[in-house]
Design a protein around this nucleic acid. Structure first.
Lengths: 217, 217, 217, 217
DNA sequence: GATGAATGAGGGTTCATTCAT
DNA sequence: AATGAATGAACCCTCATTCAT
């Protein structure tokens, strides 16, 4: 059995995604093999959509654009997703893994201080990538009514993150760990947002160093 | 002879008081009368658009929606604005005054500490309003290329704010006033964004108090 | 009683139009005076429309444009004309006089040869002006169905012209005066059309001289 | 197993023969099949547009009209043409071939006299077609500014024609072949224009014979 | 008579989605 | 499974015309 990893090149940065690839056998295709082929196509479409959504916004990307980018026909997309919105859903599932992984890595970092430093480092290190994701999600999150599922996703992620931060600040004996966690969490969101809008006019490196200093890391 | 009448005009919640005290000869309206009508209608359209843009996003609001909300015909909107985008511009002008006033008020608050406390207080006090603005502008700001004027607006506002904050922290003898200013500015943006998404699930009051404590205000 | 003549300046060329101006008296306005005022306004609108139609085409000129050019309100135009199309009608009446005048002048030129030379000279002399008129009328004449009245106008003018030419060529003892008349009439139309399209790329002067030579004038 | 069916599709006067002889497995159409469909539809749309443009003018023909005439949906037209203007372009390409062929045929006619006779004959023979083209192009050519490509087309065609005529008259030893060429070219345009407006009231046949006589053909 | 605010039908264009093949 | 032609609703915008004043 072979297990390979694909890296999604987004021009400037890269997103690491695991590809649950399957055995190749000579036997007539089993249901499982069909499933695997389907899964691969699905992934292709998702990656194409992710690339485009983060570059041009969900609304400015047409299904035709996605099909072109993915190298499949427009019709085929509706064989894998019921709706354009459903593609978005697929992307979210994809991204979940990454977030979870970040949290898990942080949790394994050692002392609370090391954890915090690791977390801040990760945020800045993956900022470009996060910015792409934000560019995709923020506008949709702000459209209330439609896209309720996005808010659920954000909620859940927020809780995860907050939980981790609260625990860290608690371990570091902050007097009000919950509010400190909120403050830092909100700050991360602000950084992500502003980086999207301002780009390199933001002094990212200096902000990172400043945070380390503030938290004595 | 003079007679005045109240006319109930279909709409949602508005009474149009039409003063019919006119010459028997049916003289045309004076320029001043026309000006008044225009001003009223313009504002009505702007308020309608602001309401809808902040509720449903600029892109998800059609000109027809705005016309319905404002209780006027679709065509009339183009009598007041050259373009859907121009409506947005009108809204920005409308909101600018408020922002400028906030900065001005803060500048008159007294000692640096009082200024900072005043500023933070204002941000939280007007968060609802700021959230409305954010919900309108952020998605557009994230669409690079189009809507360049929005980025200019944001840039300018950012510089104003940052300048004020740098001066305050400088006066308060912070070692790195510039970075502290960035941190707080970015935090405000994060708060505004998250409030949009999370609404009342955010512990706003506690965050406000927490900030006062952190800055010893 | 006073009689004045106004000249319609169309930038490059001018159209001579007679203004049946009226006595100014101190007596309360008689019906005739009101008529005169109306006539003047009407003329203003017609001149404005003529200017715009010939510059920008009938379809590319809005009633708002005309009202602006004429310096009156949009509404007032409908006090003088039932319809945008009706304005066109008014213009045609206006132009008729000129055509009739040209024919009359030619008829008074003397010998047939002098008449023909006079007519050709007039065509080239007024070509720019005619081109403006053509630009107005040709597109409308080609829209069959609507604007039937334009075709009637053109028909009548054509018959007048042709009649004049037939008589001239008959007097000049051409073997087939009718066909020679058609040929020259059609040629004039072609010149007018091509001058519109080609502008100064057409060798107008040389063509005029060439015609004189061909007809031994 | 094979089965073929004739399907009557609503429209005015066309039968669509759909060959349903397909695999049971419903294989997707081959590229060649798609090409064929596209070519057919494209031509159908062009013919529909040509019909309407020449009957009612470009501006008075809506895309909806074209779609109705072609028996397709409005949206489909934009699958084949980027723009309403692009349809016009398509028509021009379609017609260009014919014009070029006319010139080529004339060039192969033999002696200069035979060439000229051939050319005049062609102009009158194809007058109906030329009239259609004129009715489409003239109004657009007269709208300066927009539709520049139309003027380029006309220019090019004019140069072609003129060049051919100059050479013929030169070979026929006319003293001023260039001006004679202009005169005849302009006459052709006048004929085409007037035929549009006057229709059968023009004595076409007699004019043709008259031209032969004038040029001793 | 005179104004310009107001209307509403229609124009060109886009795009998510369906469907015959 | 796979294609892309085809649809139709919606979008932004224009403009001749009406109407209260």
């Amino acid at each position: 059995m072979e297990c390979s990893t694909i890296i999604w090149k987004s021009g400037k940065d890269d997103l690491i995604l695991t590809d649950r690839s399957v055995n190749i056998t000579m036997a007539p295709r089993t249901t499982a093999q069909f499933e695997a082929i389907r899964e691969k196509r699905r992934e292709k479409i998702i990656l194409a959509a992710m690339e485009l959504f983060s570059r041009q916004t969900y609304h400015n990307t047409s299904v035709a654009d996605i099909s072109k980018q993915a190298g499949v026909s427009k019709g085929l997309i509706y064989n894998y997703f019921t709706t354009k919105e459903d593609i978005l859903n697929g992307i979210l599932d994809y991204l979940f893994a990454i977030g979870d992984q970040m949290v898990a890595e942080t949790r394994a970092a050692g002392t609370p201080k090391e954890e915090l430093r690791h977390l801040i480092g990760q945020v800045f290190r993956f900022l470009h990538q996060q910015a792409l994701i934000s560019r995709m999600l923020i506008p949709l999150a702000l459209e209330m009514g439609k896209f309720d599922f996005i808010n659920e996703v954000i909620d859940r992620k927020m809780r995860d993150y907050l939980g981790l931060l609260v625990q860290i600040f608690s371990d570091m004996d902050y007097p009000d760990p919950e509010m400190e966690a909120w403050t830092l969490g909100v700050l991360f969101d602000g950084i992500s947002l502003d980086y999207n809008v301002l780009g390199d006019r933001m002094p990212l490196d200096r902000m990172e160093q400043y945070l380390y200093k503030k938290y004595n890391l």
